[in-house]
């Protein structure tokens, strides 16, 4: 393939990973924004969503579309409940102390990951996509008669991948509406701005935190259910989304939601494109190093404003 079509293909693949990353990172960002804690187990909630999706789909066994629809409703709900319970039982007891929370969520990370290993096993398992038509894409070239279109071999995307991108956009819009237009969103933002004052005004902060932690985990799970027909479910699959979400949340400015989306698109696209043209390991080295440097030299993120 020539460079142009190749780049288009890489950007399309990048768009899919950017969409999933935006959902996952949004969960981490909301949790950090409202609760001011770093959830290291976030990647495992992603993995749990994927594993549950496989489990539900293979239990139902009917047409793949039925299994998928059930999975995308049930799996995020179940993961959200697990996370909310973990918040009540563990994080609330240690008072959301930043360092102890990190240690506790590391513990949670290994418990969830190894529990998946013990029950789900070490194999990677696929989920059949609900629909999967191949859509060939045209590319242009200049001929004697002016601009002409042709269909290069291998330049195509599946309808399911397009659906993933659209679904992510829809869900993120929903989250934005939830945060800005509903009473629950108002309560969340109030808690984010001043925990004590909200409590004084009768906001049940403890319950809000449990809901927020559940919501964050559920967003990661939705991302995982969407991606699992493209990428198989595996008990170690939470590692990369966790690191990438960290990267996104840091670049976007800690706790800034629009910054998170912009950064997710940026990171997801460039990760996709760089991985096609260069060694994926090199791409990861550069990305990880760049993020560490952003944290060192611009801790408010690339998008965020400097603290006054």
């Amino acid at each position: 393939m020539e460079f142009g079509p190749h780049l288009l293909l890489a950007s399309l693949e990048g768009a899919v990973s950017a969409a999933v990353l935006a959902l996952t990172a949004m969960g981490l960002s909301i949790v950090f924004g409202v609760m001011r804690i770093v959830n290291v187990a976030h990647g495992e909630f992603f993995m749990l969503g994927a594993v549950l999706a496989w489990w539900i789909a293979s239990m139902i066994g009917a047409h793949p579309a039925v299994g998928f629809v059930v999975a995308i409703v049930i799996a995020p709900l179940a993961v959200g409940v697990i996370a909310a319970v973990a918040d009540k039982v563990i994080l609330q007891r240690i008072g959301y102390d930043p360092e102890r929370t990190i240690v506790a969520t590391i513990g949670l990370l290994y418990i969830l990951q190894q529990a998946a290993l013990m029950t789900f096993g070490p194999d990677a398992r696929p989920v059949t996509p609900p629909f999967n038509q191949r859509i060939d894409l045209p590319w242009f070239e200049f001929t004697k008669n002016g601009l002409g279109l042709f269909w290069p071999w291998g330049l195509s995307i599946t309808s399911y991948k397009l659906f993933v991108v659209l679904a992510a956009i829809l869900i993120l819009t929903g989250v934005w509406l939830l945060m800005t237009r509903t009473r629950f969103g108002l309560i969340m933002r109030a808690t984010q701005q001043d925990r004590e004052m909200s409590q004084a005004f009768g906001v049940p902060v403890d319950n809000v935190f449990a809901y927020v932690f559940g919501l964050g985990a559920a967003l990661a799970a939705i991302g995982a259910v969407l991606v699992v027909p493209v990428q198989q479910a595996h008990y170690l699959m939470g590692h990369d989304p966790l690191l990438l979400s960290f990267i996104v949340v840091i670049i976007g400015g800690l706790g800034s939601l629009p910054g998170t989306v912009i950064a997710a698109v940026l990171i997801g696209m460039s990760d996709g494109i760089i991985s096609v043209f260069f060694s994926p390991t090199l791409a990861k080295i550069v990305a990880t190093m760049a993020v560490a440097m952003v944290l060192v030299f611009r801790p408010q993120g690339l998008v965020g404003k400097a603290a006054s």
């Binding site: 590391i106 513990g107 990951q113 529990a115």
Partner: peptide, 21 residues
Amino acid sequence: LTDAYMFIAGIALLLLTMFAP
């Protein structure tokens, strides 16, 4: 008991931070 020894490590981390810091 189990090959998943990191499971034990995870539980130990969790219990330590919660009850015996």
